[in-house]
Structure formats: C-alpha cells, structure tokens
Simulated assay, not measured.
Amino acid sequence: MPAQDSFAISSNATPDGSEVAPQQLVASLGGENLSPDLSWSGAPEGTRSFAVTCYDPDAPTGSGFWHWVAWDIPATTTSLPLGVARDDATLLQAANDFGNAGYDGPEPPPGAPHRYQFSVHALPVESLGVAADSPHIAARFAIFTQQLASATLTARYQVVD
C-alpha cells in the first residue's frame, strides 16, 4: 500500500490517543453503543468509495475482535455522524463479532487496556461487490486487497477489576 501522509482521520467524540468516549461503550458498561463521529480528508486520487472498520487487536481470541465493518461509502462522503444507524441505507454494514450488523462498542474483559483502531480505507471501486449479509471477512478481504490508502486513529479502554 503506498504511503499517504495527507490522508487523515479524526473524531470529536474519540480523538486519536484518547480513551474511548463513554457513549461509544456497550450498555453493560454504561454506554449508549454509538459509533463515534469520524471525519477524514486527503484521500488519494482515484478514490471511488470508502470503508470504515473498528478493530480490537488485544481481544483474547487469537485473532482480535471486529466491532465494525462498513463499506460502499460514496467517495463524496468525508464524514460519518455520531451513532450511524444499523440500517443506514447510505452504506453497507456486516455483522460484527458480536453477531450484530453495524457498530457495537468496546466490552473488554477486566485487565489490561485494549486498543480500538478506527480506520477509513480509500478504495478504487464504487462498490466492493460484497453483500451486506456476507461474513465480515469477505468485506475485509475485499477492502484490504484493494485499498489505495488507509488512515487510522487509535483509542483505548480498560475495565479494572
């Protein structure tokens, strides 16, 4: 993947390097289970759509945990609002590792902090050609094998015993 120093992502609710905002957490942790607002700029030439992912590489699964995989976001879009609805018709959203379509927030086990990587991926196609009811691995494969560039912000969250 070519370097894209100008491609950037930000969030007012959950800035890079911050703790995940309370509203992004699942209800069992006192949250509202809302996806954070995300804004991006500087996508490379040739971008025809975007995808958004949220991944916890620290989950004790051996393969991390996918909280959100969304794609077919039009190239004219440069932000997503706080709390993207699970049935938002402007993008496709796979079932996450909780088994729900759309975003579900952090719910780590007690112990060490977990990192939550929110990424925007610039894609050279208008559509990945992956159906929303496909397993998220199909969308992720299409995203990661085609992306022109990606931008990531990382937030953390920890449940203390």
Rank of each mutant, 00 (worst) to 15 (best):
P74M: 03
T78K: 11
V130C: 04
N33E: 07
P106I: 13
L34A: 06
S41E: 12
D72E: 02
D87E: 14
D37N: 14
P44G: 15
S35C: 08
P135T: 07
W66P: 02
G111A: 07
L91G: 06
A132P: 05
G83C: 09
V130F: 08
T78A: 10
I9C: 02
G42K: 02
A43I: 05
Y55G: 04
W66C: 03
S127C: 03
S127P: 06
E107A: 13
E32V: 12
W68N: 03
G111H: 12
G99F: 12
D88I: 08
S41D: 09
A21F: 08
L82E: 05
F50N: 00
L82N: 07
F7R: 01
L80I: 07
S11H: 01
S28H: 11
A51F: 02
A75W: 02
S28M: 11
L25I: 09
P60F: 14
G99S: 09
G62Q: 13
P60R: 13
V125K: 08
D56H: 06
S10F: 09
A13H: 05
A75G: 10
L80D: 00
T14S: 13
S41F: 12
A95L: 10
P60C: 10
F98H: 03
H114N: 07
N100C: 15
A89F: 05
V69I: 15
G105M: 10
D87V: 11
S39L: 14
G105A: 04
D72L: 01
A95S: 13
V20G: 07
